Simulated assay, not measured.
Amino acid sequence: MKRLLSALAVLALTATMATAAEKVTVFAAASMKDVIDEAARQFSAKDGTQIVASYAASSALAKQIEAGAPAQIFISADLDWMSYLARRKLIDPASRQIIAGNALIIATDQAMADSDARTLLDARRFAMGDPSNVPAGKYGKAALETLGLWGEVKKNAVFTENVRLALQYVVLGEVKAAIVYASDRMAAPELKEAYRFPASSHAPILYPAALIEKNASDQARAFLAFLTGPAGQAIITARGFMGAAEAKS
């Protein structure tokens, strides 16, 4: 009887460990939500691996990982916050890679026909990510500075904690425009792209991904490989991002 109970205990422990191993925790920039949700659905359908994703500004996620949050994969909306974790030796450097790219636009409601950045932003309130810590906000401020507009329009800016919230401000009618990524507008088809910032007005918008060294499992490695493979890249481009090859070119 004791041997049977011992064997059952071992089997139960093995089953528990297997269940835990089939869960992958992804910390991803808010702008990647639609991509990761769909990638998780497709990946889970193959072998039952559960993908649990947390979305927020890259800065907030990096700080959480630094504080010990149990993420296995980090996907940032800019290079700086990935480098922040790299300097603290919290990522597997060999796994770090660019998985996508993006463009920066001004999204407005359908009633607006303006196409000039100054006109769109100078006479009305607009939303954008907080330039002090949100990558989309940093890119937006840099682009407006390059165009010589930041000094004129910053008085109208409503800063948000992530780029998706800036988009929602327009959808809800709280503001008339928002500086967001081109991919974000696809989540709000009722809005239109009124202006696209020249690529030369800001640093390239790149999405690095990496494994969190102390937490990464074989399943996490497999999911990251899925994102960089043909199926994952098809999801990325279908949702308005540039694929990895184009982003790095």
Rank of each mutant, 00 (worst) to 15 (best):
R3T: 10
A7M: 03
L8K: 02
L11W: 01
L11I: 08
L11H: 00
A12F: 10
T19Q: 15
A20E: 09
A21H: 12
V24K: 02
T25K: 14
A29M: 00
D34T: 07
D34S: 13
I36W: 05
A39F: 09
A40Y: 13
A45I: 09
K46C: 00
D47V: 01
T49P: 12
S54C: 04
A57R: 00
A60V: 13
Q64C: 03
Q64D: 06
A67W: 05
I75W: 09
D78F: 08
D78A: 15
L79I: 14
D80N: 14
M82G: 07
L85V: 06
A86W: 10
I91A: 01
D92T: 08
Q97W: 06
A100W: 02
G101K: 00
N102P: 08
L120W: 03
L121E: 03
F126E: 05
P131A: 07
N133R: 14
G137L: 06
G148M: 07
G151I: 11
V153E: 02
K154G: 05
K155H: 10
N156L: 04
V158P: 04
F159S: 10
F159W: 12
E161V: 09
E161P: 04
A166C: 09
V170M: 10
K176Q: 13
I179D: 08
V180D: 04
V180P: 02
P189M: 04
P189C: 09
L191S: 06
K192L: 11
K192I: 15
E193Y: 03
Y195M: 01
F197Y: 12
P204M: 12
Y207M: 10
A210Q: 11
N215P: 11
S217K: 02
Q219F: 06
A222W: 13
T228C: 01
A234V: 01
T237Y: 00
F241P: 00
K248N: 09
